[in-house]
């Protein structure tokens, strides 16, 4: 049960949504855009979030597309994780999405909501980070596609009133070799100790992580280490472990030391599965 009253709006267009936001914000209502609601509802129950109004963007047509247009895969931000997985236009996303929460929750959690959420894991962003994805941001001044690498830094860097309507990746990413692994403390349905999403572009591996630090990330430095073909796998993994962008989480799901152990195992699994062209297996 939520203790406070709030207003509910359900605009039909992105422009209308942005306009409602401006009005509510101006009136001091502290509005929030609303996708699947799993975070907003549970956090509001315990008063960790207290929006005066929510703007449900699920009726906005462009938030619900899921198609290949020209050489791009368009993924509406309001697709729920089951739809994103079952439609399977982007297999790395399908696999990663299936690891999030349980089936019932995935019917609610939207891909956009997962990426913009307050929980630190945001595993849904990993496939887009490694696939050089773009994100369509709507706001008062209309919509524009931006490279994710420019607007995602630990969290989505949105200005007040902005929300994401779509994600885009190049169609070619649907057919590259990929790797997605989620490690949990024990239960299959849990937040990650570590989630790794990776793909091979040409001879290079790209990899992004969730659960390791207080934010999801893709690291050019780590990729350089893992792609150092002159080194053994062991050295590559060890070098990568030393280049994490922040302190390793140490919480009730696992100690930092154990997470690093799990990470080194996951990286070895990834290297095994995505061996680069001409990779000398004996290096292992």
């Amino acid at each position: 049960m939520i203790s406070f009253d709030f207003e509910y709006y359900r605009p039909d267009t992105a422009a209308e949504a942005a306009e409602i936001y401006q009005v509510l914000s101006g009136a001091g209502k502290n509005p929030l855009y609303y996708g699947g609601g799993t975070e907003i509802i549970t956090m509001a129950q315990s008063n960790q979030l207290k929006p005066g109004a929510i703007i449900d963007i699920k009726q906005i047509p462009e938030c619900n597309v899921f198609e290949v247009r020209n050489d791009e895969i368009l993924i509406g931000a309001c697709l729920n994780l089951n739809q994103a997985a079952e439609g399977n236009l982007f297999p790395l996303l399908s696999k990663t999405a299936r690891g999030i929460a349980d089936h019932g929750s995935r019917d609610k959690i939207t891909i956009g909501g997962n990426i913009c959420g307050k929980l630190i894991y945001r595993e849904g962003v990993l496939p887009f980070l490694v696939a050089d994805g773009e994100v369509v941001i709507s706001g008062q001044n209309g919509a524009a596609a931006r490279p994710l690498s420019e607007v995602f830094s630990q969290t989505m860097q949105l200005r007040p009133g902005e929300f994401i309507t779509q994600l885009k990746v190049k169609r070619s990413y649907a057919s590259v070799a990929f790797f997605s692994q989620k490690k949990t403390k024990q239960a299959k349905v849990d937040y990650p100790l570590l989630t790794v999403a990776a793909l091979r572009q040409g001879d290079d591996l790209r990899v992004a992580f969730s659960g390791l630090c207080t934010f999801p990330f893709r690291s050019v430095n780590i990729e350089q280490d893992l792609n150092s073909r002159d080194l053994s796998w062991e050295s590559r993994v060890n070098n990568a472990l030393g280049r994490l962008p922040g302190p390793v989480l140490n919480d009730l799901r696992g100690s930092a030391a154990y997470r690093l152990f799990v990470l080194s195992g996951a990286l070895r699994d990834m290297l095994t599965q995505l061996k680069g062209v001409g990779e000398n297996v004996s290096n292992a």
Partner: peptide
């Protein structure tokens, strides 16, 4: 108590 919710206190599920 740090895991006083079913998000954090896990019990076995049917599939396990």
């Amino acid at each position: 108590v740090e895991n006083a919710s079913l998000r954090d206190y896990k019990i076995m599920r049917f599939a396990e």
